[in-house]
């Protein structure tokens, strides 16, 4: 019995050391910072709020800074993931948990929703890892949360910017772009086929025309023939080609034109 009581007491002690999910946490904070203990200075709080607000405004990345007094039960990362899924929704989100006085703080978890076609998973995870690595290099513990927020915003912002550019280049144009590209492709094909064909026809036409012109200009000699000498005419036998072109009849019955 004593052993059971000792077990339960120790269990209670362990749980009391760890932060449990408070009911207030289930609802999203007004801004991007959850700091019930008021650990953050006002000035820093404003700076962090600005930074995280910028990430949401510009790239629709929802980042939250959470300051806890104690390490959450089940680990900070699991807790952060839980919070992020609850607050971040289907988009890109990130939760930075800072527990003052504990080594390795802050921890960060960032994810992107399945609908978000934002970079590759590898590059996304790498960006988060790089941001946190740089954060841990900051010697002043008080500044680490601010640095973490800044670095994460920058990293994800860069990814967002990259995506935005890609969107602009390919996405925004959408079908129009694809149609344009196809048009260009078909135009190119027409050019590739049409231009040489026209050139070929032109060259052939040129040679045919030149030959014809040459033949036209080339003097032609009729063959000599036996003369059909008739009516005792030495040079000509006369012809039967005659035409009258007078139409008017004068007063004196003459047909003078």
């Amino acid at each position: 019995m004593k052993a059971v009581i000792v077990f339960f007491t120790s269990l209670c002690l362990v749980f009391s050391q760890e932060e449990r999910l408070p009911s207030a946490l289930r609802s999203k904070p007004d801004g991007h910072i959850y700091d019930p203990s008021g650990w953050l200075l006002d000035e820093r709080r404003t700076e962090i709020e600005e930074t995280l607000g910028k990430a949401e405004r510009q790239w629709s990345v929802r980042l939250f800074a959470v300051v806890l007094e104690r390490n959450p039960a089940g680990g900070a990362e699991a807790y952060a993931r839980m919070l992020g899924r609850s607050w971040g929704g289907e988009g890109v989100w990130g939760v930075i948990i800072h527990v003052p006085g504990i080594e390795g703080t802050p921890w960060c978890v960032a994810e992107r929703g399945s609908m978000v076609k934002w970079a590759s998973k590898e590059s996304f995870d790498e960006a988060v890892k790089a941001a946190m690595d740089r954060t841990r290099r900051e010697p002043a513990e008080r500044l680490r949360l601010k640095v973490a927020c800044k670095e994460l915003t920058d990293e994800l912002g860069f990814l967002g910017l990259k995506e935005e550019r890609i969107e602009k280049k390919f996405g925004e144009a959408g079908n129009e772009g694809v149609e344009k590209a196809m048009d260009q492709h078909s135009n190119r094909r027409v050019l590739f086929v049409g231009v040489p064909l026209i050139l070929l026809i032109g060259v052939v036409g040129f040679f045919v025309l030149r030959r014809k012109l040459r033949n036209r200009k080339k003097p032609f000699l009729f063959p000599e023939t036996e003369h059909r000498v008739r009516f005792q005419g030495p040079w000509s036998g006369g012809g039967n080609a005659v035409l009258r072109f007078t139409r008017k009849v004068g007063k004196d019955s003459s047909r003078r034109g």
Binding site: T225, H227, G237, V242, L243, R244, R255, R256
Partner: peptide
């Protein structure tokens, strides 16, 4: 040019290559 008539007569050498109806 007074009565408004015109005719064509060709020599023996050229005659085989042209026809009267063509001249008309």
């Amino acid at each position: 040019h007074v009565l408004g008539r015109v005719s064509v007569t060709s020599g023996y050498a050229i005659e085989p290559f042209v026809r009267d109806d063509q001249w008309v």
